[in-house]
Amino acid sequence: MSLNGIFPIEQWNFNTPDIFSCLTETEYHNLITKQGAQKYEKGQTLFKEGMVPTNICFIHQGKVKKYKIGPAGKEQIIYVAHKNELIGYHAVLAGERYPDSAATLEESIITFIPREDFLQALRHSNAFATRLLKALSHEYAVLANHISLSTQGTAAERLATALILLREKSKTETAAGEAPVIDLSRTDLANMAGIAKENVIRLLKEFKTEQILETDGRKIFVKNIAKLVSRAGIR
């Protein structure tokens, strides 16, 4: 079932894949294809908070979490990026160190775009620069929604919203006719929703009782997206 008309997904997801649609084949090759790609296993770090950025990450396949570590050592997942998304470009544009860390959530294929190549592409393509500026503006609104949810939403609303976003991202790597699968550890799910792992386990059981979802090990299958949207409390 589609989210059209029942959940404003565009207000909760970044849209960096759109910025490449304005590039010519040659520009795309110079920026991404010629760099080659590297395979990363699940749990590998791409960059850490405080590092000086020399590259920007382009995700060909897999999922990557952006996160921060709090004073007590607790991890907070800020965003989960997936196929065709860029991460790490904010620090490059600002000329600052990485404000967060990034690590793979599953086996992933990543291209590292050299900082200077990325900046040169922006200097030579007004369309590319405009698309990126638009994406950055959209991200501000997305982050504002996430902050509002994290400070005002209940545990159930936070978890339901996290599951909706993860289900939507899973669609990009799901074969036609197959149901999307959320494959994430309960710890990562808790860190994404900003709630305790114990609450995640309890709420998943509750959602199963309400026939909203099914589980198979760590895998989660959403059976009734309308009910899940209702539990998220977002209009």
Rank of each mutant, 00 (worst) to 15 (best):
K227M: 02
N30M: 13
Q35G: 04
D188A: 13
R231G: 04
K63V: 10
R231Q: 05
T151D: 09
E106T: 10
T104I: 10
A94M: 09
F118A: 10
S101K: 03
Q38R: 15
H146G: 00
W12H: 12
L184C: 05
K65W: 10
I201L: 13
N224A: 10
I201M: 13
E85A: 05
A141S: 08
T45W: 06
I87S: 06
A160L: 11
Y98A: 03
L204P: 06
E10H: 14
D117C: 07
I109P: 00
N55K: 03
E41Y: 10
K134Q: 14
E27P: 09
N30C: 11
L132E: 07
T45Y: 07
D18F: 06
W12T: 00
A127I: 04
E178Q: 15
L119R: 05
S101P: 00
G70N: 11
R131K: 15
I56H: 11
E49R: 11
K197V: 15
D188R: 03
G95F: 09
K42T: 15
L149S: 11
Q11V: 06
K65F: 12
E210F: 04
I164S: 07
I32V: 15
Q76Y: 07
R202E: 14
N30E: 15
I220P: 01
Q44M: 09
G62N: 08
P71T: 06
S108K: 13
K134G: 13
G88N: 10
T154E: 12
Y40F: 15
R218G: 08
D188S: 14
G73R: 00
I56E: 14
T45N: 07
A94H: 05
Q120T: 09
F20Q: 04
K134F: 12
H82A: 12
R123T: 06
F118N: 13
T33V: 10
F112A: 06
K39I: 11
S185L: 04
R97P: 05
Y98H: 15
P114Y: 02
Y40K: 10
K48H: 08
K48L: 11
I110Y: 11
H29C: 07
N30F: 12
